[in-house]
Nucleic acid binder design. Sequence first.
RNA 1: GCCGGGGUGGCGGAACUGGGAGACGCAGCGGACUUAAAAUCCGCUGGCCCUGACGGGCCGUGGGGGUUCGAUUCCCCCCCUCGGCACCA
Length: 832
Amino acid sequence: MASDDRADRYPFREIEPKWQRTWEESEQFRVTEDPARPKYYCLEMFPYPSGRIHMGHVRVYTIGDLLARFKWMRGFNVLHPMGWDAFGLPAENAAIDNGVHPAVWTHENIANMKTQLRRLGMSYDWDRELATCDPTYYRWEQLVFIRMFERGLAYKQRSKVNWCPSCQTILANEQVENGRCWRCDSEVTTKDIEGWFFKITDYAEELLAWTDKLPGWPERVLTMQRNWIGKSEGAEFELPVAGRGDLAITIFTTRPDTSFGMTYAVLAPEHPLVDSLVANAEEAERVKAFREEVARETEIERLAADRPKRGLPLAARAINPFTVKEIPLFLADYVLMGYGTGAIMAVPGEDQRDWDFAKQHGLDIIATVKRPPEWPETQAYTGDGVKINSGFLDGLTIDEAKRKAIDWLVAKGIGRSKVNYRLRDWGISRQRYWGAPIPILYCGTCGMVAEREDRLPVVLPEDVQISGKGGSPLAEVASFVHATCPKCGGRARRDTDTMDTFVESSWYFLRYCSPRYEQAMFEREAAEYWMPVDQYIGGIEHAVLHLLYARFYTKVLRDLGMITLDEPFAALLSQGMVIKDGAKMSKSKGNVVDPDDMIRRFGADATRLFTLFAAPPERDLEWTESGVEGASRFLNRLWRFVRTHGDVIGSGGRLPDTLTDAGRAFRRTIHETISRVTTDVERDFHFNTAISAIMELVNALHDFERDSLDGVAREERAALIREAVEVTLRLIGPVAPHFAEELWQGLGNPKGLFTEAWPAVDPSALVKEQVTVVVQVDGKVRSRLTVDVSAPEQAVREQALAEDKVRPWLDGREVAKVVVVPGRLVNIVTRA
RNA sequence: GCCGGGGUGGCGGAACUGGGAGACGCAGCGGACUUAAAAUCCGCUGGCCCUGACGGGCCGUGGGGGUUCGAUUCCCCCCCUCGGCACCA
């Protein structure tokens, strides 16, 4: 037992708490703005205080800490803050289950998790810690809410919204995943109620345009956001209803060029025009039955692929304005009220859905694009081609025809070009307690009124009965609900909804810049200095949630004149999940690894080392205990080396002017390692290969120590070993900070490791006199040569051709060509 | 269906700009130390084949084609897989 207490193992249980205390007491990672130094804002997505950290947290925060410490050593002024995304449903559920108040539960969890993060040795500026449930925090988003309300960017509307029956609240579209609640996985239903929305659709075009201007973001995240915004360009125009001069159906299409092929049109079942289109009571009855049939489908059923399309023909007919022919009208479930105009022109010739529907109902199909000869008769054609059967569009390409068709619509005054987005406004009302109150009141005389800014914050009351029975618990708190009207002073009632917790996380990165500032959301100069976040790190699950909301909110703050900033996050790193036995860690699978347990058994540094080493950051990380043991073994090996060679390292002084061959080779390894680790960390985020390079250096150090006793002068040997050790400790510092700091200061270095500069590459150490050149015959390696770097190409070629191992391969063949890549290889190409 | 990742030893993963495939680590095997084990240290470790041995050959980065003196890397087609969007007109 307790084998890790043996003398040949480093005492992480002593040194880790020791250095954590020292760094904190010396306020080493406390920062202020300093225009003289380049700034680096390193931010990891802040955690929800669920109670305990998990391996996913360890992974993100380890990556962030590595970068922050690295940037410190690179001379940056580093802002590396931490805080708590403290509002949200789990706190309320805990209250319902255990009777503990959400505030109490949340603060206890924060205290726990803070202790855990400290045990990992994170370099946070704890002075900037914040919790979003604090009134001094959320008061500012209430202020912004009011300003958004005044500008129409926040509005209240009754509409069909996503409703989670289990969480008893509205969900934003982004919070519904495959028809299920993002948090509790219950099936989402729809509900027709009033709620508050942020007008994110006003920013759809800008949010989309900037996805092409964020080179530091991973492509997959940008793609997800583009898909989510879902821009489509086309035209909108009117179809007159035959015999009804008063009625026209507006449709949206991305293919106005195919208008001559429109052989029918379709309305969404719930389209408002339908009631005025029905001919008689009998038809009204059929429409009603059809609507009910469609409405019965659940969200999940609607998502199922290859459903047969349900349709109902109407007696009324429309007129295709291009052909001036009457066409049938249908209601069908494949047309959605929520997109475009809720009505389409159907072109079965060039749209597979319309084709399927037309076949089902025996409707006409007209091709308006010339098909390739081998095109099957059984499906719509969506490819390129020349327009046919299309009147004045005949002979044009699709793009030309689109433009000409739109021009024609505009000239006739019945249509226009139109851009549609899939993105919907952000529903932010939550019928729950543990969130920031919406600062709106309802007055009998003045109606809906925003709270006066000088009466903010609207504080969330603490004396609340939380039943979980539904409806906002705030509605039961008389002292909260009854207030005076900010306008007339009369009696008014407060809005009892709270804001989506994603509102708090949409600006916390700005608050970190001046977390105690009392005059505004943030101190402008501080924010202008620190923003944007230079490196943001977090999980892919927020690709279209938090990361879209935060981008939107930042643009709103900019347009409110609060800051000049277009985008909050210059670069984003989406780290992969931590998995075990091939699956995401979960209690039900029983494959959860507890960070505290790892820290207790292997120490924070070995845990950190393993999470960085086992996989590149953006990929999933398979947790293996033997891997952690390997990480621990490496640290112990280095520890033993430094401890048992103290005398050699201590006696290491200035390097002699000239080195032995062995010494020069070793020194080249040292400096090549610095170079590799630096680019791996700084440019590529290849932390795993950075660590393997350091491991190679340590291996080389052992070899050099052993092999240099003879043949290398004692001064040279000691100086090189010292250089190698000091370089290694500085390189491994950001990965295993306690370990490196202990050894570093143990060598008698007076200053802390993280106030030291990152090691610099000595270019002269990289110079090679000789290189190994591969000799190939017809692309296959047959020999290797060691030649002087300066050897002329001709000489290398001749030496290669004369090689003993090469000549047999040339026997009976003629040399056709010799390719020489200087310093790399010679390829001798032969023919019979 | 559209968009975006990815596919390399027993495993995690490496490979600059088209130039030695498999770095580093895990697991495994052999040896040293030990009464023994653990720990540690040294060595081997893609597959197939030839050789008594020293050595050597062939194959090999999802599959098929192509470009090239040379392809894990570039181009075309296909398969598998993960993620996003999706009766979105």
